[in-house]
Amino acid sequence: MISVKEAKSILKANIPRGPIKKIPLNAAMDKIIAESIKSTMDVPSFDNSAMDGYALAWDDQQTIWELTDEIAAGDNKKHVLDKGKACRIFTGAPVPKGADTVIPQEWVKKEGKTISFEKNRFQKGNHIRTKGAQTKVADVIIEKDQIISPGSIGLLASVGIAEIPVYSPPSVGIIITGNELKPLGQALDFGQIYNANGPVLEAYLNKLGITNIQHYQALDEPNLLQAEIDKALLKNDFVLLSGGISVGDYDYVKSGLENAGVHQLFYKIKQRPGKPLYVGLKENKVVFALPGNPSSVITCFNQYVKPSILQWMGYSDPWQASEIIPLADNINRKAGLTFFLKAKVENGEVHILPGQESFNLIAFGTANCFAEIPEEVEQLDLGDHISVYYW
């Protein structure tokens, strides 16, 4: 049995990044760039006016300029401005050849076809955005491993990039085991329970942007379970099993994974809930065998599966706690196991909720995080700071 810290260290060292694929820019929000992106063009791609005003060639001796032309944004003619002349120009419009300065319209005195202005307020080159001032062609504009934001989508679109390389989200197979489980919508017979783990796992995966999900159901019979494991490993990058990983007479998952050629990374963690957690690899396929208890499933998913999937998708360090904040309660308990307690962060404090028993799901109706109590800690007092993990 290993510690929580050891388990996370093993996963961080062994979970691969997913394959790189190109996706449309409009589908890239919150994805991780898999390769640095270079600009396809100079930005601006031409000298243009930063103001509504008048374009001219600066001359220290000249005081009056004759107006000869007008250039609006989007004008694709190649205008030429004669020496000593000026033209009306609007923001974003191309600066005509022969001009080197734009005077804002509010500072210009216009009389008929001529303009003048207070020259001591300006100097040569004012209010022109020169070609390549922001970016030159082949400049790196977004570094590898950055998260795509609305701002970076705007930047990429501005240079005409329609597709970008990202780490592909994994396909995930969910295998639910247990003779006692019944699908939602069907009446329960005596001794049966509803399948809660399938829906909760799918919900968490959807929240991570995972939509390629396959569902498998296996009774507690070795050959049937083996067939589902083999099918899931063939078709999916991640395989999540629920139940059958403890040491009971009907727990066949571990042997089934061994028969399928899965290499064990670790089995059992010094934590509560979720001690009998199994993690293994088969080539680049990742297998999590979770306990059958829904509280354990939710805990293990958030602490181990979620950060592993985020690492696969290129996130740099998804293993850190969300926050370290003060307790609103006192905690006394026996050391030896790391506890992940259902909790709610409110008004800057973490409140430990009642109903911490592993069978009890009622706290999940109001909880928004897990509070981590390290294995060596026996007592925490109100105001002590602890790590919390939002889900």
Rank of each mutant, 00 (worst) to 15 (best):
D59M: 04
K113D: 15
D189M: 15
G244P: 00
K78V: 12
Y216F: 13
I142H: 10
L233W: 01
W391E: 11
I64C: 05
M1S: 11
A73K: 11
E6H: 07
A73V: 12
Y389R: 11
K275G: 00
Q264Y: 01
I352T: 05
A218N: 08
F90L: 15
Y250I: 02
L277E: 00
P222I: 04
Q105L: 12
N223A: 14
K270H: 10
E323D: 10
A27N: 15
P326C: 03
N360A: 12
Q217W: 05
Y390L: 02
S39I: 05
I2Q: 10
G198H: 00
K275Y: 02
K77E: 12
D237A: 06
T114G: 11
W312D: 03
I153F: 02
P222L: 06
Y54Q: 13
L81S: 01
D237M: 02
M313P: 01
L225S: 03
E375I: 07
R333T: 05
K254F: 09
K334I: 14
I269Y: 01
S45F: 12
K231P: 00
H79P: 04
N223R: 13
A227N: 13
D42H: 07
V345I: 06
S36K: 05
K77I: 10
R272I: 12
E283A: 10
L81Q: 07
K21C: 13
D220H: 03
P16R: 08
N332H: 10
P354D: 06
Q123P: 08
G132M: 06
P318Q: 01
I352L: 10
Y250E: 04
V137I: 15
S246D: 02
L234C: 13
F339Y: 13
E221F: 08
A34E: 08
I71E: 07
L382W: 11
D75G: 11
G256L: 02
V388P: 02
Q271H: 04
G209P: 11
Y167L: 07
Q226F: 02
I161H: 05
S3D: 03
L67A: 14
V80I: 15
V286M: 04
S322P: 01
G280L: 00
G348A: 06
L81E: 06
N48K: 12
K12V: 04
L281Q: 11
L25P: 06
Y390E: 02
D30Y: 09
L205W: 03
L25C: 05
Q217M: 10
K38G: 07
L290Q: 04
A260D: 08
D329P: 12
G125P: 15
V345P: 01
I298H: 01
G261L: 03
K182F: 04
G112L: 09
V159T: 11
V166C: 07
F288C: 01
G92L: 02
V262C: 06
G280R: 00
S3W: 00
L380F: 03
A343V: 08
I20N: 04
V297R: 00
I174F: 03
I161G: 07
G209Y: 09
Q271E: 10
P150I: 04
K113Y: 13
H263F: 10
L241C: 06
S358V: 10
A13W: 08
G348Y: 08
G18A: 05
G98E: 10
Q192R: 14
W107Q: 15
L181I: 07
A289M: 06
V102A: 03
D30N: 14
R88W: 15
T63E: 14
S36I: 01
T40E: 09
T366D: 07
Y194F: 14
V172S: 00
M41A: 07
P165K: 00
S168D: 12
D69Y: 14
A93H: 01
K21G: 09
